[in-house]
Design a protein around this nucleic acid. Sequence first.
DNA 1: AATGAATGAGGCTTCATTCAT
DNA 2: TATGAATGAAGCCTCATTCAT
Lengths: 178, 178, 178, 178
Amino acid sequence: MRADARRNRDRILAAAEEVFARHGASASTEEVAAIAGVAIGTVFRHFPTKQDLLAAIVKELLARLTAEVAELASADPATALFDFVERVVEQAAEKRAVVELLAADGVRVGVADPLRGLADALGVLLSRAQQAGAVRAEIRLDEVLALLTATAQGALHGGWSEDLRRRALAVVFAGMRP
Amino acid sequence: MRADARRNRDRILAAAEEVFARHGASASTEEVAAIAGVAIGTVFRHFPTKQDLLAAIVKELLARLTAEVAELASADPATALFDFVERVVEQAAEKRAVVELLAADGVRVGVADPLRGLADALGVLLSRAQQAGAVRAEIRLDEVLALLTATAQGALHGGWSEDLRRRALAVVFAGMRP
Amino acid sequence: MRADARRNRDRILAAAEEVFARHGASASTEEVAAIAGVAIGTVFRHFPTKQDLLAAIVKELLARLTAEVAELASADPATALFDFVERVVEQAAEKRAVVELLAADGVRVGVADPLRGLADALGVLLSRAQQAGAVRAEIRLDEVLALLTATAQGALHGGWSEDLRRRALAVVFAGMRP
Amino acid sequence: MRADARRNRDRILAAAEEVFARHGASASTEEVAAIAGVAIGTVFRHFPTKQDLLAAIVKELLARLTAEVAELASADPATALFDFVERVVEQAAEKRAVVELLAADGVRVGVADPLRGLADALGVLLSRAQQAGAVRAEIRLDEVLALLTATAQGALHGGWSEDLRRRALAVVFAGMRP
DNA sequence: AATGAATGAGGCTTCATTCAT
DNA sequence: TATGAATGAAGCCTCATTCAT
């Protein structure tokens, strides 16, 4: 791929992230193009379908999150999981569309694989937290994922204040502890 | 309002609830009209805007929920709150649009007042639960509301199984207990 | 259907016939709307798809042709078939899209039935011509149809002069006679 | 022109013939480029316009046909004309776009001259057939051309079976005989 | 001369809303 | 009041053509 193409691709992705974050997945492709400063055709050359564009930014975020999880693999097992969840929920507001899609259309948008990647990585954090006695043994990965996305969505759509977010998560974390 | 107009209004609301529950708030007004068995013009005569229609069904649901809470005022304080939350989350899947709107557009849609009504009623349940020693004292109403909507959304969009829903709520409830 | 709707439907069909006759089936629906003097949405209300619009004008022409054939059922058997073919080819130039679709997309456009109706009616003319000794016995209906559409297309696309058309058909007719 | 340019030009022409034969003149230039194994820019360098590309392949085919006619100049006068027509119609299906363009846009596409060349060559076959008594004297060249393109188009768009094609042409040939 | 990315007009279709009947 | 036809802005996408690399 040529340098200018790469640059445009990146600008489109950035614009899409911004636009979809503001208006949700129903925002128009034209607006993405406008903000990216390219013609509409350019967007469709890089992402032949609106779905493809959405999938691309979701994948990117998932990859970023998975990487963050990986970094935490060597952190304190007793806090790593909670730290990660906290961080994700904190950033949720920046990722309107991503959260929507993760929750609603994960499969349809075709990000099943990256999603599994993130889940696997999270699973490791969970196991370690349980072995460290920081999380009850009977709690399973799907509950963690479910509560993660639920609170992320809540924080996002509900416009939670920082304080509210902290207290809500505190409840959830307390519920996970022995 | 004439009797037939009243009847039409009700049929439209019922149809809207059904349609928006199935396809979310992006479902078309035309489909609502079709299912209500009226012409599209009639829908717009009763609800000059799609937003108005959405607000109406949200209000209706909020009123219903508030009534349910009121009934629980005389139930066992130690379980009433948990029972109510359980029930709401359980029904979330049936109210796609309502959950969406409550979470996302609550203000814009203009249901602030009915929402406050529900919150107040819930506040009573919370106080009683705390006095009964079933919920930690430092937990505040906004956290409960936040976790309520978050899990409702999660259950809705995430397509949680009954089992997963139960386990996720169990975590939250455990976090609320002393 | 209301009177104004009927009127619009007819105007759209007339406009479509004109537009598609001039520019072929690839002409734009917008142009049809413009010439019909209605908004684009009105075209799509009456014909939800461009294909539907095309199918409608093809069906209409087929019906017209079938009616013409029926009228000829009592005419001189020795000349009725030739007269009809002559007439169709003569009118071909006015029906660009129709001829295109008849020839190319008959099935896809969903006019199989009306087409069969015309074929059946033509079959009667052919039998009678053969019984009257005006057409060789071994000639079958599909050849007649094939030569009919071929010459109609030829006349249409080739821009045949009246004289050329007459001479070309004279050859074909001579080939059909005993 | 450099050798590689020449090679590219030929590959583009071959690809265009194939693509337009399959999908008609509305096939995309991009597909031509893909099959030719060159970039889209290269196609437009050689043929500044889609029309030019179409004209080029039509010209090529016409030249090929004219050459075939020339070869038949020394064949049996009584059958050469019929043989040629038969062959052209037979091949029609392989030349979707060519037939379309010959018939529809001959002039616009700017292939008047090569077309005249073919016509002249055909004229020779016709004269000889008439002198041999195989074709009626009053039949003129334009009728032959008209019937040739008409049946070619018919065979192409109508999807005639081999049998139908033979019978339809038999009728036409019978009509040309004394 | 080749490449392939960028452009942007134009096509089809949907749908909230208005308005004549 | 109800009906349902009409409106037209807006969305997604395609593709001939241009232009920087």
